[in-house]
């Protein structure tokens, strides 16, 4: 796939990663347009089914990104998110979803540069991995 452009759905928390994305924008940093940001109040509210839905609908990658440990606006939502990502990473590979398609990162509100870098890296990685199986097959 020469011109494969991965679709990435990113669930980003309002207080850190979304703010970082905002900062990247106001700093006029550019990052790939493959990423679709979905702002949530906290990564702790990302039900595993959101991730599954995105993957079944054909997303090539899903990113969940929130505040660094200890910085959660709601004290511990990011720790809960980490357990859910661990849970998903135990389940999804059985059904042929490569573990690399699901990522969890901590990007703080002041990390605009890092946000843009991580998005670029993610796109490069997923380009190498190729399109998701769910995109190619009709999932019912």
């Amino acid at each position: 796939m020469e011109n494969f452009e991965p679709v990435i759905v990113a669930f980003v928390c309002n207080w850190c990663t979304y703010t970082a994305a905002d900062l990247a924008g106001t700093s006029r940093l550019s990052y790939p347009k493959n990423v679709r940001l979905i702002r949530v109040m906290c990564t702790g509210m990302v039900d595993p089914q959101y991730v599954i839905k995105a993957l079944l609908e054909g997303a090539d990658g899903v990113l969940v990104s929130g505040c660094h440990p200890g910085d959660c606006h709601y004290i511990n939502g990011n720790y809960k998110a980490r357990r859910r990502i661990k849970l998903l990473k135990e389940i999804l590979p059985q059904f042929g979803f490569e573990p690399e398609r699901l990522r969890l990162t901590w990007i703080g509100a002041s990390d605009g540069i890092q946000f843009a870098e991580i998005m670029r890296e993610l796109v490069t990685e997923l380009k190498e991995l190729g399109p998701s199986q769910a995109k190619l097959k009709m999932v019912v």
Partner: peptide, 13 residues
């Protein structure tokens, strides 16, 4: 439940 220092391997690219 959760612990502060667990499952570091699922974090990051």
């Amino acid at each position: 439940v959760f612990k502060e220092d667990e499952f570091q391997e699922v974090v990051g690219l």
